[in-house]
Design a binder for these strands. Structure first.
Length: 907
DNA sequence: CACGGTTAGGTTTTT
DNA sequence: CCTAACCGTG
């Protein structure tokens, strides 16, 4: 063992003394290849950090010989932090990073060898789409038939599988030479040829622009290692231990990258015994993963990487971690039951010593809004009555679009929350514009970014000017920027266009000079760009209230740059741009330790690797989750199921499963059937606070009797009427015949294509009749409730086709509820029906004029805003119809609002 | 060339 | 519901 003053030497006892048998084995394992099969919550991060410490202190490795790869920057930062605590500050200098960051680092060092100059740009998805679109237009490819998205997806596939341009062209378009103008595609409609040609041209133009996309970061690093033996040799010597987290989510390119870095195929014999310092055979590889948590197949992740690990790596060994330290038995039972429906997986027996815990809570709401409402109030109850911290609670959903209604519900209930993901900061238009300036400064060859800013802000250089320069430069094989510089030589150039072009060129030259001088202070460069470009000025003088927040975003960008500058010893402008390109949603999560005081909202994908005492899994509906696009295909459905497994296992103590019977999609309402995953969870585990939605009950029961067949708006009104039930118990009193033999509620219709039947083609649910009973049904919605309106009568699904669970009504489940029914049904309410508005009055009705007068407001006045709550007036600007009022809403921030449309009230 | 207004089309999930 | 794309008018 060596002595490094910066490494805290830990005794074996300290490193494995508090671990279970399997964990301890995994930490200490000596051998070239180890797969740690880490079930959810089995303490894998702990094992991983301990193993690194073990390697350092027990195997005697140098910190610089270790490469640890995680999936997100956040995970990397966390691991680094844990390592620091364990082994000391040396952890700060270790290679602990994502695949992508590690590759950037490698490419920055030696990328020149494969034609990447040092300031290369990393294109994000939007940039790539722009480029593909440009190419498609040039080649007269119908972008309606072949969307840039589709084409890009194919290109991504090629890259993830390390299929090069050369071989693709050879197979599908042998006559095409990238960079040649006016190439005619042979037979129209030969998809493969089109893909191949665009792929080739795309790579060609990326190279011209000195740019790479996300997939290139991996693929080109592999290319570097494969074609430059001395570079490969350098890393073979350097990294003696490689550890990869979330191995189930690696794609083929990443798999190959690991092999190349480790030198597995270099043919060298491993050292017979202890791997010391120096070159002694391939690096030792440790991978950690759980095939049941593979949820990135859509991005090329190949589950067989982990499944075939033992065959792929010589002398590999697998250690399974099966004790779960996170969740209650109930939660694990649910997770295990769901995942058991996936075929062809190795059975796993996760267990916990934590005990049974509380049952899972189920809730079926009428609409997405009501689902949100119920969740928000349940969270408030948990907070107030059970003393739970908001930060201990997370709400998860399948797709980002679902967050909107949830947010609204939380705002109304005054529950503080933070939203993770969605439109990312760096993808906002104004931020992207500013970044485009920086990119164009660092890398003038980058035509995509250069063109983006040519006329932003407006400087009279529109589509015509752009195409003239592009055409002229293309003909000569020059970059767009070179075209701008030599604009006066372009034939047909008018002074009207030439002048602004010259000004633009001068400005960019000046900015470049400034950037060169201040390369170590990116924040200064940002400030200079914002000022010189006119970006800031344009937004400042705008009357659009939205532009105010854009200004704030730009100032935040400057803060981010300043922060980067302070935290990075060798800060450069290019380095800063790198960090902005590689952020992930999860990176914005606050540190585990700190109590943000807020409920967290995020997608299930973002939630991977996290845990919360209380988890709400929302939108448990066919078509929402599993997603409609994934329901037809078995393998995609399996992935959805793994996603649900991930979601369920995020919960430590309490799990809620909620669904909505009606969900708005594209502004149109759709009926949603319960998610099949709900049925895959054993009955006894879920305590349904509300078993079926009002529409479903109504449809099946006396709703029929009460109304006849009416028009399209029928059930919407019905919903309006009966949507307010909030029974804590929904006990169906089944007629004898309803107790059919079928074991699973609605099983018969799952798998058919009658999911989420949309508006109009109504279907019906449930069995014959229901008895509602509840002790506290109405009061919770009391304020919003209004008396039944006499004008609208109850409705029904006229001519409905029963497609769901009619005869196969709840059997085993209903038995449980059946007993509950008998004990509660006595308190059944009278026929009086309370109701509430279907949707909580969104801002739409305020598009017009709220007839507020700016002159009625004075600085210091208190106002109330529907979303932001209470605020104080800071400033009023009388602009007649477009009067602006600036209000400080405290924690919600300072907002500039257009008075005419602001949902505010003077107090 | 910029702007406003209209329309058609589109929703997974993310480094 | 949202946006990007399109088309007409200053």
């Amino acid at each position: 063992m060596h002595n490094d003053p910066e490494v805290i030497v830990r005794s074996p006892q300290e490193l494995v003394g508090d671990l279970n048998e399997q964990q301890a084995q995994a930490v200490q394992f000596r051998g070239p290849a180890l797969l740690i099969g880490a079930g959810a919550g089995s303490g894998k991060t702990r094992v991983l950090t301990r193993r690194i410490a073990w390697i350092l202190t027990q195997f005697g490795a140098w910190p610089s010989q270790i490469l640890a790869i995680t999936f997100t920057n956040k995970a990397a930062a966390e691991m680094r932090e844990r390592l620091s605590a364990l082994i000391g500050p040396v952890a700060q200098r270790m290679w602990v990073s994502t695949f992508h960051s590690a590759c950037v680092r490698i490419l920055r060092r030696d990328g020149e060898r494969i034609g990447l100059k040092s300031g290369f740009t990393i294109y994000d998805t939007a940039d790539c789409e722009r480029l593909v679109k440009l190419i498609a237009t040039d080649f007269n490819i119908d972008i309606k038939r072949y969307t840039p998205r589709q084409i890009l997806a194919r290109i991504s596939d090629y890259k993830n599988n390390l299929t090069g341009v050369r071989e693709t062209l050879a197979q599908y378009a042998p006559d095409f030479r990238p960079g040649t103008r006016g190439f005619r595609i042979g037979r129209v409609g030969n998809v493969e040829e089109i893909y191949a040609i665009v792929y080739a041209e795309y790579q060609h133009r990326l190279a011209l622009a000195n740019a790479v996309d996300f997939d290139d970061l991996i693929a080109r690093t592999v290319e570097l290692l494969r074609t430059q033996p001395d570079v490969a040799e350098y890393y073979h010597r350097k990294f003696r231990y490689i550890l990869v987290d979330e191995y189930q989510d690696t794609n083929h390119a990443q798999y190959v990258l690991v092999r190349e870095l480790a030198g597995v195929d270099s043919g060298e014999r491993p050292a017979p015994d202890a791997p010391g310092v120096g070159r002694q055979g391939p690096a030792w590889i440790t991978v950690v993963g759980d095939s049941d948590q593979s949820i990135y197949a859509f991005r090329g992740a190949d589950i067989s990487n982990i499944q075939d690990f033992e065959q792929d790596f010589p002398d590999a060994r697998t250690i399974m971690l099966e004790q779960n330290y996170r969740s209650t038995q109930t939660i694990l039972d649910a997770a295990n039951a769901v995942i058991a429906h996936n075929e062809g997986r190795k059975p796993k027996k996760l267990w916990t010593a934590a005990g049974k815990g509380a049952p899972i809570t189920g809730y079926a709401a009428d609409t997405a809004q009501l689902e949100a409402h119920w969740i928000a109030h349940e969270i408030r109850r948990l907070h107030q009555e059970e003393g739970l911290r908001y930060s201990d609670i997370a709400i998860m959903y399948r797709a980002n679009a679902q967050s909107r209604s949830l947010e609204e519900g939380l705002i109304q209930a005054h529950v503080p929350y933070q939203l993770i993901g969605g439109t990312k900061f760096y993808e906002r238009r104004e931020v992207k514009d500013a970044l485009a300036y920086l990119q164009a400064i660092v890398n003038p060859a980058d035509g995509i970014n250069m063109r983006r800013i040519l006329n932003v802000p407006k400087r009279g250089l529109g589509a015509r000017a752009e195409s003239m320069v592009t055409a002229w430069a293309d003909e000569r094989g020059l970059t767009f920027w070179q075209g701008v510089e030599q604009a006066e030589r372009i034939e047909g150039m008018t002074t009207r266009t030439l002048n602004p072009l010259r000004r633009f060129a001068a400005m960019m030259t000046q900015l470049r000079a400034f950037a060169a001088e201040h390369d170590r202070q990116p924040s200064q460069v940002v400030a200079e760009v914002l000022a010189q470009s006119g970006l800031l000025e344009e937004l400042r003088k705008s009357t659009d209230p939205q532009d105010q927040s854009r200004v704030e975003n730009l100032s935040q960008l400057q803060s981010v740059a300043a922060e980067y500058e302070q935290n990075t010893p060798d800060a450069t402008l290019a380095g800063f741009l790198e960090t902005t390109a590689l952020v992930a949603d999860s990176d914005q999560l606050p540190d585990e330790a700190e109590d943000s005081g807020k409920v967290t909202l995020m997608t299930l994908h973002t939630a991977k690797g996290l845990e919360y005492p209380v988890v709400f899994l929302t939108g448990m509906e066919q078509g929402t989750f599993p997603h409609s696009r994934a329901m037809e295909d078995t393998s995609e459905l399996s992935e959805e199921r793994r996603l649900s497994y991930v979601g369920i296992t995020r919960a430590k103590r309490r799990l809620y499963l909620t669904r909505a019977a009606v969900r708005a999609q594209w502004g149109r309402a759709s009926e949603m059937m319960p998610s099949q995953f709900l049925d895959e969870i054993p009955d006894g585990l879920i305590d349904w606070k509300r078993r079926e939605a009002g529409v479903e009950r109504m449809r099946s029961g006396w709703g029929h009797a009460a109304g006849g067949s009416r028009g399209r708006d029928d059930w919407e009104e019905g919903l309006d009427e009966f949507g307010g039930w909030d029974d804590d118990f929904t006990e169906p009193s089944y007629g004898g015949s309803s107790y059919g033999g079928s074991s699973s509620y609605g099983r018969s219709s799952y798998g058919s294509s009658s999911y989420g039947s949309s508006y109009g083609s109504s279907s019906s649910y449930g069995s014959s009749s229901r008895v509602r009973s509840s002790d506290d049904a109405a009061p919770r919605f009391g304020s919003a409730a209004r008396e039944r309106s006499s004008s609208s009568s109850s409705s029904t699904s006229g001519g409905a086709h029963f497609s769901y669970g009619v005869s196969s009504s709840p059997s085993s489940r209903s038995l449980r509820f059946g007993s509950a029914a008998s004990s509660h049904s006595s308190s059944s309410r009278s026929g009086k029906v309370t109701t509430r508005r279907t949707s909580p009055k969104p801002a739409s009705s305020l598009d017009k004029d709220n007839r507020l007068d700016i002159n009625d407001f004075r600085v210091g006045d208190k106002v109330s805003h529907d979303s932001f709550g209470l605020g104080t007036v800071l400033e009023t600007q009388d602009k007649g119809r477009n009067s602006i009022i600036t209000v400080d809403f405290g924690s919600a921030g300072v907002k500039r609002l257009m008075l005419r449309v602001a949902p505010i009230e003077k107090l």
